[in-house]
Amino acid sequence: MLGNQRPTIALAIGDPAGIGPELAARMVADPEIREAGSLVVVGDARVLSRGAVEAGLALDIDIRGPNEPLSPGGRPVLRDLGHLDPESIRLGTSSEAGGRSALDNFRTCLEMGKAGLADAVCFTPFNKPAMKLAHPPYDDEISYTAGILGTTGPASEFNVLEGLWNARVTSHVPLSAVAGLITEARVLRGIRLTHASLRDAGFAEPRIAVAGLNPHAGDSGNFGHEDDEIIRPAVETAQRDGIAAEGPFPPDTVFLRANKGEFDAVVTMYHDQGQIAMKLIGFDRGVTLLGGFPFPICTPAHGSAYDIAGRGVAHPGATRAAILLAARMALRQAERTRHSETRPAELV
């Protein structure tokens, strides 16, 4: 793994007006993070320094310029882009400058992953209005990442809370558009990507529940026909493919069953159908994984928390969980690569 036995994790500092700098500083000082991987923070040294002051930490970090070789493996490294004076940013306020710095940091991390200089990418919370100010075509991290990496295959956000995963068929679209976007092909693609991503994370035989779209999963057609005519056939096709998928289940109870351990993941039909449940279960521990890309990309599931920016009280649990998940998935990818390289050619 880039010359050492631990994965190299590129961590982009997110929105500088929120809690992102504080969380990045806390990760640099976290012994569990240091043990799990070689951390390369990407951003402006002055922004990270302000985050350290907010967190009350003195950081032990190796600072490198934007074009200097990194040679990760020892203490954490900061790739100092030198592109943002934190004094120009008003805490708790979206700005073009803040969005531009976060995008620059994220793009640099993605390019590191693409070039083989990082085994996984993480980022502290972004602020979407700031990102839009800096880059008007910006929709979400999925489309932006696909553009930078040049990938065209299926990709999706997953919310991960310890042993429970949530995927969704549609994401950042108006609720009024959801029903028209629910097709058998999209649902099946979501199930397959969920299965593959869970396998990448170490689940040998993932158990997947699929939520219905309508109340009571349509109630045999009384409340809509999408559940029986679109979602159920997709589940049946997945089952024929050998995937342990079941459903569609009523959306208002499926997470109760999953949270009790009956399923490893729930595939939902739209953004809030799963997000509300997952954040109620564990807001401070939830992770968002961008699945379907060549390397793991993870972030805490919560936002930039403008209301507590600069106060030094940000909870690090979700950010820590994001980096640890990325590190575990990167290790598994490396193991699979080594295994395939050592197998006889006729068996690969």
Score class of each variant (00 low, 15 high):
residue 243 I to G: 10
residue 251 P to Y: 10
residue 302 H to T: 09
residue 242 G to S: 04
residue 255 F to Y: 07
residue 237 T to F: 02
residue 297 I to C: 00
residue 261 G to H: 10
residue 257 R to L: 15
residue 286 G to Q: 11
residue 270 Y to E: 12
residue 273 Q to H: 06
residue 296 P to S: 11
residue 244 A to R: 03
residue 263 F to S: 00
residue 288 T to H: 08
residue 274 G to I: 02
residue 243 I to N: 14
residue 251 P to A: 09
residue 257 R to Q: 15
residue 259 N to L: 14
residue 247 G to T: 02
residue 263 F to L: 03
residue 269 M to R: 10
residue 272 D to V: 01
residue 293 F to S: 10
residue 292 G to W: 12
residue 261 G to A: 11
residue 298 C to F: 14
residue 298 C to E: 12
residue 237 T to G: 02
residue 253 T to V: 10
residue 302 H to M: 09
residue 262 E to R: 09
residue 302 H to K: 15
residue 234 A to M: 05
residue 291 G to H: 00
residue 266 V to E: 02
residue 239 Q to G: 05
residue 244 A to P: 00
residue 235 V to Q: 06
residue 281 I to R: 15
residue 275 Q to Y: 10
residue 274 G to R: 11
residue 250 P to W: 08
residue 234 A to C: 07
residue 235 V to C: 01
residue 277 A to L: 04
residue 266 V to H: 01
residue 293 F to L: 15
residue 270 Y to T: 11
residue 285 R to C: 04
residue 234 A to Y: 02
residue 281 I to D: 10
residue 278 M to Q: 04
residue 243 I to Y: 13
residue 271 H to Y: 14
residue 237 T to C: 04
residue 265 A to C: 15
residue 265 A to P: 14
residue 262 E to A: 10
residue 264 D to L: 02
residue 275 Q to K: 10
residue 248 P to M: 02
residue 239 Q to M: 12
residue 254 V to H: 08
residue 277 A to P: 06
residue 300 P to M: 00
residue 256 L to H: 12
residue 250 P to G: 11
residue 268 T to P: 04
residue 234 A to W: 05
residue 268 T to L: 08
residue 288 T to S: 13
residue 295 F to V: 13
residue 280 L to M: 15
residue 279 K to W: 12
residue 249 F to R: 04
residue 275 Q to N: 06
residue 298 C to H: 11
residue 270 Y to H: 14
residue 250 P to T: 11
residue 294 P to Q: 13
residue 256 L to G: 13
residue 268 T to F: 09
residue 273 Q to D: 05
residue 250 P to F: 15
residue 239 Q to H: 09
residue 281 I to P: 06
residue 270 Y to F: 15
residue 291 G to L: 04
residue 244 A to C: 00
residue 297 I to E: 05
residue 257 R to G: 09
residue 263 F to A: 03
residue 272 D to I: 04
residue 299 T to S: 15
residue 255 F to K: 01
residue 292 G to H: 07
residue 244 A to Y: 03
residue 236 E to C: 02
residue 302 H to N: 10
residue 241 D to Q: 11
residue 256 L to E: 11
residue 302 H to W: 13
residue 296 P to L: 07
residue 294 P to E: 03
residue 265 A to F: 05
residue 282 G to R: 05
residue 268 T to I: 05
residue 272 D to S: 07
residue 256 L to N: 10
residue 239 Q to P: 00
residue 301 A to Y: 07
residue 301 A to N: 05
residue 241 D to C: 07
residue 254 V to I: 14
residue 292 G to Y: 00
residue 279 K to H: 14
residue 277 A to H: 12
residue 253 T to Q: 04
residue 260 K to V: 04
residue 280 L to G: 14
residue 252 D to V: 15
residue 246 E to K: 04
residue 299 T to A: 12
residue 239 Q to Y: 05
residue 260 K to H: 07
residue 299 T to H: 00
residue 264 D to V: 03
residue 248 P to C: 01
residue 275 Q to T: 07
residue 281 I to W: 11
